[in-house]
Amino acid sequence: MAETVIKVKNLVKQYKELTALDNFDLEIKEGEVFGLLGPNGSGKTTTINCLLSLITYDNGEIQIFGKNMSGNRYDIKAKIGVVMQNVAVFQELTVYENINFFCGLYIKDKKLRKQYVEDAIKFTGLEDFKKFYPKKLSGGLLRRLNIACGIAHKPKLIILDEPTVAVDPQSRNKILEGIQELNRQGATVIYTSHYMEEVEQICTRIAIMDKGKCIALGTSEELKRKIKNTENVIIDIKKIYDEHIKGLKKLSHCYDIQYSGDKLTIKFSGGKHNLINVMNYIAENNISYDRIYSELPTLNDVFLEITGKELRDREG
């Protein structure tokens, strides 16, 4: 039975009129890659800041590695690695010096530290940039440096707060692969993001947050099973008559149809041959279309069904 690394009970954080965390509970086991998913303002970063005792909270209990966490628990802090949302490095030090400095706050042994720093540089692919200063690095490389500074000391628990914001796809993939590798090496990972694709890709268990509460918890599959929607059939179609929409809605297991922006989305709950049924109907009714395809539900659909909102905020 895996040990509990993090245990959060009834965490409350209030900012004047805004409740950032509303009796938030969390339990993370050793070896997990735990995802905290939610739109902007749902309380992800606040949770992280409370976990790390960077801010005070109004109520609740936080235990890390079985001990009550507080600002001066340096024994607990020694086992944690943090990768912040904002790049947190010294502009006045080179890549190597930054990693060495922050690793040195955790690892006193010079020889061991040197090895760890080299490992971190190799891990994040920064070998060619050791002597560069941060202002000479691109956004993606900066993010990699940010990660290197957070994980160089090979911590048991790694917390990454939206580490791939504004990062190019190549760097992004490298980061995600790296996290999985760290997990394979034995680290427990907390990964917060509002990019569901990333969370789905690497997280073993996911908590979906909204307005300071955990609204759904489980593996990706478990979460998707929780919702009604099991399959979406999407047709790119420029024009469709209402009677055809009504007809499609009558198909077996179909519970909803939406048509906007030349896209017709037919939502199914259950059923095995939904795509074929739709194609048959189209053929029978001579409906012309551009494209037709089937999609399995995403975490966005989970979020949408539970909250009525999208994971990624829309303007207006």
Binding site: N72, N86, V87
Partner: peptide, 17 residues
């Protein structure tokens, strides 16, 4: 200082006082 800079945050989560 954690409330004054990003590096301050990082320094604050380290095990060194």
């Amino acid at each position: 200082q954690r409330n004054q800079s990003d590096v301050g945050l990082r320094v604050n989560v380290s095990p060194v006082k």
